[in-house]
Design a protein around this nucleic acid. Structure first.
Lengths: 122, 122
DNA sequence: AGCGGTGGTTTACATCTGTAATCGGCTTGA
DNA sequence: TCAAGCCGATTACAGATGTAAACCACCGCT
């Protein structure tokens, strides 16, 4: 488990996270809204994802229906943690500080985050 | 500008961000504490970084002295923003929420972040 | 029964990445 | 001055990735 998902493969995952199970053609159709890929390309990506066990498929008549095996949430967590570990010594604070500094947050956003944090205490 | 820096190259960048300028041999020496790479490998990575214009070099007698052209801070910002864009719709809030949820933050850390945010208002 | 479409599998191929070894030039000690 | 080093540049090579085309099996239509 937990092979790395590439950039292109991620676009396919996003489609499946949004809706599943889907056939390869369906996936290609939805992915097409974002990237200009041929059906063949999507098929390749799906196969690779199946090989990586990030996506599962089961026969439905004569075609496969694909579904994510990796939850989006789990994946996002892994990637986020990777970034935090690599650049911020695993500490959340510096990341927030950094981002907050860069993207000037609106007072409203700040308030929202504060609320969130308040709820976490206790 | 702004080619992507690979994982291995990043280790070299970290060394240069810590201290620069350095000769290739110096870089190899410091990098060796983390990864078990031959001098040749480090030289290759340095060349690639120079090609990507992430690192600059200038002659010092007969050897080069290498220095980062990309600031660590700028790079970290780019990567952080990439992650936030890809997974959290560009919004900082959901990232914080997500991470906060995962890594149970100590009350102390929460307090620190709150303090930080408070300072940002105004 | 033959044919075109549908769908998965195999093959293709350039680029990037990880990880080096080797080459060629310049320097310096013997 | 000649061989031994040191150093950047060139070449190497396997695996991952982006992006497909080609191939093959099967099903429904004519």
């Amino acid at each position: 488990m937990s092979e790395r998902i590439s950039e292109a493969e991620l676009a396919v995952m996003e489609v499946l996270w949004e809706e599943a199970p889907l056939t390869a053609t369906d996936v290609a159709g939805r992915v097409a809204r974002q990237r200009d890929w041929s059906l063949a390309t999507v098929k390749t990506l799906l196969s690779r994802l199946v090989a990586k066990e990030a996506v599962g498929h089961h026969l439905d008549g004569r075609r496969f229906l694909y579904s994510p095996l990796v939850e989006r949430d789990a994946y996002v967590t892994r990637e986020s943690r990777r970034l935090v570990d690599r650049f911020f010594g695993g500490k959340l604070m510096p990341l927030v500080a950094h981002l907050a500094e860069q993207q000037s947050l609106s007072d409203d956003e700040i308030a929202q985050i504060e609320k969130l944090l308040r709820e976490m205490k206790s």
